[in-house]
Design a protein around this nucleic acid. Sequence first.
DNA 1: AAAGGATACAACCGCGGATCG
DNA 2: GCGATCCGCGGTTGTATCCTT
Length: 266
Amino acid sequence: MGRLPCCEKSHTNKGAWTKEEDESLIAYIKAHGEGCWRSLPKAAGLLRCGKSCRLRWINYLRPDLKRGNFTDEEDELIIKLHSLLGNKWSLIAGRLPGRTDNEIKNYWNTHIRRKLLSRGIDPTIHRAINEPNTQKVTSITFASGNYKDIEDEKMNIKAEFGTIKEDDISSRPQCPDLNLELRISPPYQQNQQKRALEQSNTGSWRTSPICFKCNLGLKKSKDCSCSDSSNGNGCSSSRNISMNIAAYDFLGLKTNGLDYRTLETK
DNA sequence: AAAGGATACAACCGCGGATCG
DNA sequence: GCGATCCGCGGTTGTATCCTT
């Protein structure tokens, strides 16, 4: 069964937005707020479909958007996040304040892909192009990370999820470029009580009730395991959850004064 | 200076998941 | 439980601008 069109195509404008249309949209959203995109065009007096309005607002008109060139810092962050998340542009955008998924996607396709290719790296799998691709893996580079911290982190990840094989940790060449073959599985539940006790004593990150998926911004995932957290809220109310320290260290995001813990996912 | 190609990015399209009645 | 509807995402396209010849 096909979907109904999102709007009456014959009565809508397409193509580039005019200044007047922009102004109408901004004025309407300022007065009434975002949301209800389907009815917004009519209410705002725009001959556009709701999706078009939403896109225009989110990608171009929102006042908190950061226009202009991407910094090297942002470049590297995008590469790291892409190596971990793949083409999940909205999740990546959620870690870059003032940037939109569309902008990052375009930037990736026009700049970063080329940059990686010029470095001899396959932008899809984040591996050297001439390296035999026996297995798709997620590569994460901690260029500025402390190696001991990384080793601790690997042990912590193992303890948390119980799914990284011992030889993955001990037998890898000891180099700062961490190449984790991530195996995401239902979290390790057995020690939750013990960890809850630790939390009360130490406040340690390992005791956080927020699951790994939520740390990655995969809220409301069916694999989410923190819905039974002590406050009863779990991921469903975690729109403003700060990334816990472990996760953002793990992602290599704690860099150069940018505190990504404060960022929201959309 | 003009033509053609390359690049950048705004906008569109179709799909899937979430939500509602 | 099911269909209808809405929203958001990722891929793709269209077009303006820049660059090269």
